[in-house]
Write a protein that binds this DNA or RNA. Structure first.
Lengths: 178, 178
DNA sequence: ACATATACTGTCCTGCAGGACAGTAATGTG
DNA sequence: CACATTACTGTCCTGCAGGACAGTATATGT
């Protein structure tokens, strides 16, 4: 694919504007759902090398949205038990999608984060979204990529705008404890 | 809510343009995913009076997209067994979300369709999407509804545009038989 | 230092999603 | 009018998602 087409649309958001740090993955998810495209979803799963079930997918999206989180906080937003989260994180860790590290401020606790978040943070995005999307877009024509990135830009801008208004109505996802 | 804001945006699509007959539900789904909002999803589920699990949700979306379908065709697009579809349809039927009728051209077969599809078809949409969305939007402020419908209009127009290009690349969902 | 609370993980177990298969009803075919 | 085929439904069963609970490690209060 023509990588200038995507790289120019990968830009950090002003922190606090919108829960998603990577515009592209959020929008790609929306597109996938809108199209209900098993084909497209299959391409992504094939690239990530694993079958992403619902909880795993949600975990990744939360990590993408909020950055490093504790398993406890994940359990809360996922509405599931702590031990189950433990299993999910382990599976994702084995697949190289997330990393675990002990929280320096409380060594009982651990922090779960997307792999390579540090390096990607320098560019203002997380690695997972980038990598998956770039590899999927690899199979598309330049015209399709251009159309897709244009759509992304406009859609996300609108979504941020709409989100600003709806946030105050108590519809935003619950914040993880800081 | 100001119902002129929504009713003006409910318009039939040119048939064949895009698999979704109701713009709003498709977009609402996208928004729900984008926001990963349990609150919002909860509102919809509460309105529809039932817990919509994944297969049920997908079934409804397919019916919304393609109109009345045979259980066999549903099984194919859902990638699941016929007997399981039978159970899903039964559950949805009990909840009043879908109707079953025998196919007049082949009385062995039945057709599954969204409830009140006939009446809603006159308006160019299906009842389920309308009802659910209107009831959910009821709780929103007029400004939010306006912002939402604007977003919907633009997003769907873009999606149709993008879909036109990607269709030929084999990414569209498989068509139901005949 | 000792007791108690908190953060997580490992092990076990249950409930249910979803498939296999048999049974019924309608249609096509010679 | 048999007989094969297709469309669906009901019943049974298995595998696994996901919770309960106990065990380990760190933190905090007295």
């Amino acid at each position: 694919m023509s990588d200038d087409a995507t790289s120019e649309s990968i830009r950090p958001l002003a922190p606090g504007d919108f829960p998603y740090r990577s515009r592209l993955l959020a929008n790609l998810s929306a597109l996938i759902l809108l199209w209900e495209s098993p084909t497209l979803q299959g391409q992504i799963l094939a690239k990530s090398g694993e079958t992403l079930d619902q909880p795993s997918h949600q975990t990744l999206r939360h990590l993408l949205a909020w950055g490093p989180m504790r398993p406890t906080a994940l359990a809360e937003v996922l509405g599931t038990g702590a031990s189950y989260v433990s299993k999910i994180v382990r599976r994702l860790e084995n697949d190289g999608l997330v990393q675990r590290s002990t929280d320096p401020s409380d060594r009982r606790a651990s922090l779960v984060q997307l792999t390579d978040a540090g390096e990607a943070a320098a560019r203002g995005v997380y690695a997972l979204g980038d990598r998956m999307i770039e590899e999927v877009l690899d199979g598309w024509s330049a015209a399709d990529v251009r159309r897709y990135t244009d759509l992304t830009e406009r859609f996300v801008a609108d979504a941020i705008d709409a989100a600003a208004g709806m946030r105050e109505r108590g519809l935003r996802p619950s914040e993880p404890e800081d």
